[in-house]
């Protein structure tokens, strides 16, 4: 297919990007383009001006922020995230989620910032970033601001990033040895958008018996990526048992309104959330116990 006409503006600095976005009326930021360009080809999206930020050199990086965090420039590709030794050491759920995105060619071009700002409810990274309580640094004409993940995703394909702003970087925490994680992407065919995606982080007590903290991020089950708050609350402080995990799985569908498509009805998605929250919790707990020396 063929996109509608638009004007292409390549920028090489953040300031230039902000200036152009401010100038033009119908501007849209182009990062990796792996979500936006297909939509434009299908003519389901047709911005008047594409502001290509992919040439800005200092937005692609992964670097430590002290001991407790990692900062990821918004133009960092999925492939770079997937292979980052620093993230693998400090925040391994993120490379795991990135490895499952689409295919090599798309991971070579798609970016963490682009994926976050596109806010497709079925993307892999947003629920993971939600579970991580990541922080999103946005720059705009009035300066920069930092938005926590829970506020970042506003609605279907809508985030806190306004039309004249760009996402600068994302900060994720270092996960200590008490943390366990899992990312499960359930789909009919590898690499596709998931029928459900479940990102789980658990923090155990030093004996590996009790859940000190649980965070569950879900994809493809609501207009936005979301957290299974009821299940998280339920699990907090609980001693780990199969019955508890099962009950949490049951509660994880509270407040979900999944849509239906030919690959899964709303009901099926709710069922799958339960299955994969339970399995994901088991996997995350096993990992945490191994990491904490309590196998």
């Amino acid at each position: 297919m063929y996109p509608r006409p638009f004007e292409y503006r390549a920028v090489t600095t953040v300031d230039e990007a902000l200036r152009v976005l401010h100038e033009v009326e119908d501007g849209k930021v182009l990062a990796g383009g792996q979500s936006l360009l297909p939509l434009m080809k299908l003519r389901l999206a047709s911005p008047g001006v594409l502001v290509d930020i992919s040439g800005i050199p200092d937005l692609s990086y992964i670097r430590p922020q002290g001991e407790n965090a990692v900062e990821i420039g918004s133009l960092t590709t999925h492939d770079t995230v997937a292979h980052s030794a620093l993230l693998q050491e400090r925040c391994p759920i993120l490379p795991a989620a990135a490895r499952g995105i689409a295919d090599q060619q798309i991971r070579n071009r798609g970016t963490i910032g682009g994926s976050s700002c596109h806010a497709d409810p079925a993307s892999d990274l947003p629920p993971t970033l939600l579970a991580l309580d990541a922080e999103f640094s946005i720059v705009g004409p009035k300066g920069s601001r930092t938005v926590p993940a829970k506020e970042f995703f506003v609605d279907l394909f809508e985030t806190q990033v306004q039309r004249d702003e760009i996402l600068h970087h994302i900060q994720v925490p270092t996960l200590g040895p008490q943390w366990g994680w899992s990312y499960t992407k359930f789909n009919r065919r590898e690499g596709d958008y998931p029928i459900v995606g479940v990102a789980i982080l658990v923090r155990l007590d030093s004996h590996g018996r009790r859940l000190e903290e649980v965070r569950i991020g879900l994809a493809a089950v609501n207009p936005t990526p979301c957290r299974a708050r009821a299940a998280e609350r339920f699990l907090q402080g609980q001693e780990i048992s199969p019955a508890i995990l099962k009950e949490a799985a049951h509660r994880s569908t509270e407040g979900l309104h999944p849509g239906s498509d030919m690959h899964g009805s709303s009901q099926y998605r709710r069922d799958m959330v339960q299955v994969f929250v339970r399995r994901g919790l088991e996997e995350a707990v096993t990992r945490a116990r191994l990491a904490g020396g309590n196998p």
């Binding site: 279907l156 609501n222 849509g259 030919m262």
Partner: peptide, 12 residues
């Protein structure tokens, strides 16, 4: 093409 999102987009 957009069936995956149709329910939610139409609702919105």
């Amino acid at each position: 093409i957009a069936q995956r999102l149709l329910d939610q987009a139409a609702d919105r």
